[in-house]
Simulated assay, not measured.
Amino acid sequence: MAAGIGAAAVLAAIGLGTAALLTSGGPAASTATSASMITVTPKMPISSRELNSLIARGPDFGPLADPNRRAACLSALGYPGSVQVLGAEQVQVNGKPAIVLVLPGDQPDVIVGVAVAASCSSVDTGLIADTTVRRP
């Protein structure tokens, strides 16, 4: 009798398992993170202290010295083309020329630093990094 009950339990388990496999939605998607999906947030090429110091000296716009080109770059970044640039400096990022622009923040005690490729335009900003820091 015990053998009959055990056999019935095994048959029921096989039946339920088979039914579950047949009604499943296919293979489950992997939740493992792939190395190709990992992104690294680029770091601002200058420190917050250096960003603040750019405000005190004349801006070095480099290739963005032309006001129309600078306005196109700013517009592409989502800022009004007429926004007052508080400071600017040419830098190298990974061996390529870039420009750090210092813009006013949403509050008077905040500035925004934006690093863009020297080729920043309305078509391609070449955004490298951006950060928001407090003024001292």
Rank of each mutant, 00 (worst) to 15 (best):
M1I: 08
M1S: 13
A2V: 11
A3E: 15
G4P: 05
I5M: 11
I5D: 11
I5S: 09
G6K: 13
G6E: 14
G6V: 12
A7F: 09
A9D: 08
L11E: 09
L11T: 12
A12D: 07
A12R: 06
I14E: 09
I14T: 10
G15Y: 07
A19F: 12
A20W: 13
A20E: 12
L22V: 14
T23W: 11
T23Q: 08
T23K: 12
G26R: 03
G26F: 05
P27S: 12
A29F: 09
S30C: 07
A32N: 11
A32T: 15
T33H: 09
S34I: 09
A35K: 12
M37W: 10
T39Y: 12
T39A: 15
P42I: 07
P42R: 12
P42T: 07
M44F: 08
M44A: 08
M44Y: 06
M44V: 04
M44K: 07
S47T: 14
S47G: 06
S47Q: 05
R49E: 15
R49W: 10
R49K: 13
E50F: 06
L51N: 08
L51W: 05
L51T: 08
N52E: 15
N52G: 15
S53T: 14
L54V: 03
I55D: 10
I55A: 09
R57C: 11
R57T: 13
G58I: 11
G58D: 14
D60R: 11
D60A: 15
F61Y: 10
F61D: 07
G62I: 02
G62S: 02
G62W: 01
P63Y: 02
P63A: 08
L64I: 03
D66Y: 00
A72H: 05
C73R: 00
L74I: 03
S75G: 11
Y79G: 00
V83W: 01
V83E: 02
V83Q: 01
Q84Y: 02
Q84C: 04
V85R: 00
L86E: 03
L86A: 06
L86K: 05
G87R: 06
A88K: 00
Q90T: 10
V91R: 03
V91I: 02
V93C: 02
V93S: 05
N94Y: 06
G95C: 02
G95M: 01
V100Q: 01
L101P: 01
L101C: 04
P104C: 06
P104I: 02
D106Q: 12
D106K: 09
Q107P: 06
I111D: 06
I111T: 08
G113F: 06
G113R: 05
C120A: 06
T125A: 06
G126E: 04
A129I: 04
A129E: 05
A129V: 03
T131R: 05
T131Y: 02
T132L: 05
T132R: 15
T132H: 08
T132F: 08
T132Q: 15
R134G: 11
R134M: 10
P136W: 05
P136V: 09
P136Y: 07
